[in-house]
Design a protein around this nucleic acid. Structure first.
Lengths: 109, 109
DNA sequence: CAAATAGTTTCGATATGCGTTAAATATTGC
DNA sequence: GCAATATTTAACGCATATCGAAACTATTTG
């Protein structure tokens, strides 16, 4: 039972946050760029980015040429865990079908 | 932009639903069994199962020996899509690092 | 130091989700 | 037909998330 997976999924559950993650796949972006690209106000995007950061999905860096700017980039960890979780389900489907057959015919247990 | 992915993620965002999916990995179960195993009341589990079903993550079957019982089993489609989505992020991390470097040093765009 | 810029945090309002209790539906068994 | 079983649906209250607007922090620029 992975608590961090719950955090990851909760963070990705919001469509705007998932869209933001998709945007970040093309490369790191500034907060303002993300807000504009996602059609969100700056505060809204800021809150979403915070949620993603708390979930460990993105990280924030300050570019050296302007410390006001915040650049966000994806972090691999949580996504890898999510992938592994989703992956683990695969390869079980054939077993599932057999088990379903047995369960339905046998009466469960 | 995959709307179905949003539905999948929203469905999996709830800890109880994710736990239910984890339970179903071991094989199909009756609604009552799932409720008991997850420590939820029957109505609560019923609504979670509905959410999972609407997301296409589980399917419902009636065993022939008792039509009152509903057996739930995992469905592969949405999970596969989720896996593919999470997978697509991987293999981009090295590029991400390069892009971050370029972005930070170059001034962005 | 004042003005402008980038972004975040707070505040108030609305909306959505979850759980429990009670009622309803469908089905089984006597 | 009537009581019991398996599960869902409905109604209510509570907690939480989200948004926009306004205020705030930090930093750059003149």
């Amino acid at each position: 039972m992975s608590a961090s997976l719950d955090v990851t999924l909760a963070a990705l559950a919001d469509p705007h946050r998932r869209a933001t993650v998709d945007l970040l796949r093309q490369g790191p972006r500034r907060a303002g760029e993300l807000a504009q690209a996602a059609g969100l106000s700056a505060p809204a995007m800021s809150r979403h980015l915070r949620a993603l950061r708390l979930a460990g999905l993105v990280e924030e860096t300050h570019p050296p040429f302007d410390a006001r700017v915040r650049v966000y980039a994806l972090r691999p960890g949580p996504m890898a865990e999510l992938k592994a979780w989703a992956e683990a389900a695969e390869g079980l489907w054939s077993d599932q079908l057999l088990a379903l057959k047995a369960h339905v015919e046998g009466g469960g247990g």
